[in-house]
């Protein structure tokens, strides 16, 4: 069992958790992920690591309540409660080097895994320009954390409820068009956002790293459910990634594969909401 050491709300449907998993916390690196399971009937949920503290044994995660399992975690799992299973770290860590100037782009929940990468790139001596965005202010978080990790931070929302109105790709294009030398871009967020950002950076020939969140079962290389096409070859996001060269990824296939279980996800969520309503009345 893995105890929830801390839980705090980052928005109406977003929580940050610190889970007690000292063996994971001791070795976890930016870019890696864990798999957790809430209870005996639970699914295996892959989540990218936000932070890990070897001293306290805590592993930090951010969870957006989009489906049945994540809703259940938000509703029913509080500080002091325990998760049944927690395994990691999994996947290949981000390649943190001194590149020069790096743009770190986080969209929606993607801000969470982006944050430790931005911080480590900054610590490694890079000039880090941050761009974070979300649909609206309720879905935006870690503004302070990202400000501290970046030399400069631009905030955008689709509806203009915080920062500039627009998409994260807008300031990206502006910076690249300005002629400023940029050595590498990290873009993490919804598949469509990563696709658009990769298309922009391709025009300017800037190497771009994306982190793929395809559907996984075991997360350890066994099921192949997370396979994505990168440079026309099938790769497993769990063991070959989750980070890949954004210019090589077939994002349309990723988006299509992410949606395969949409009906089942809706069914499970509706059933959960109905059960909860039933329990309240």
């Amino acid at each position: 069992m893995y105890k929830i050491l801390k839980k705090r709300a980052l928005g109406p449907m977003i929580h940050e958790y610190v889970i007690e998993a000292p063996e994971v916390a001791r070795v976890a690196k930016a870019g890696q992920f864990i798999v957790l399971r809430l209870h005996e009937r639970g699914e295996r949920i892959p989540l990218t690591i936000v932070d890990a503290d070897p001293a306290t044994g805590g592993v930090k995660l951010v969870v957006q309540e989009v489906g049945k399992s994540t809703r259940e975690m938000g509703d029913r799992f509080e500080e002091g409660d325990s998760l049944l299973d927690f395994a990691g770290p999994l996947g290949v860590p981000s390649e943190i080097e001194r590149y020069g100037t790096v743009i770190c782009i986080g969209g929606g929940l993607g801000i969470a895994p982006l944050y430790p990468i931005a911080r480590e790139l900054h610590d490694a001596g890079n000039t880090v320009l941050g761009i974070i965005g979300a649909r609206n202010v309720d879905l935006l978080f870690y503004e302070d954390e990202m400000s501290a990790a970046c030399d400069d931070l631009i905030v955008v929302t689709d509806d203009g409820s915080n920062g500039r109105k627009g998409f994260v790709s807008d300031p990206l294009r502006e910076i690249l068009s300005s002629g400023r030398r940029v050595d590498r871009v990290w873009a993490i967020g919804p598949a469509i956002m990563m696709k658009v950002c990769s298309e922009v950076t391709r025009e300017f020939g800037v190497p771009t790293v994306v982190s793929l969140n395809s559907v996984m079962i075991d997360g350890t290389g066994m099921c192949g459910g997370c396979r994505v096409e990168v440079g026309n070859a099938a790769r497993f996001a769990c063991v070959d990634g989750p980070e890949f060269d954004g210019h090589q990824v077939d994002f349309d296939m990723l988006i299509s594969r992410q949606r395969y279980y949409a009906d089942e996800e809706t069914c499970a969520l509706d059933r959960y909401i109905a059960d909860r309503k039933g329990a309240e009345t």
Partner: peptide
């Protein structure tokens, strides 16, 4: 392992 044959009682689906 995930008992998808008992979805949605178990959380993991199969199609």
């Amino acid at each position: 392992l995930m008992r998808a044959y008992r979805f949605p009682e178990y959380d993991t689906p199969i199609k």
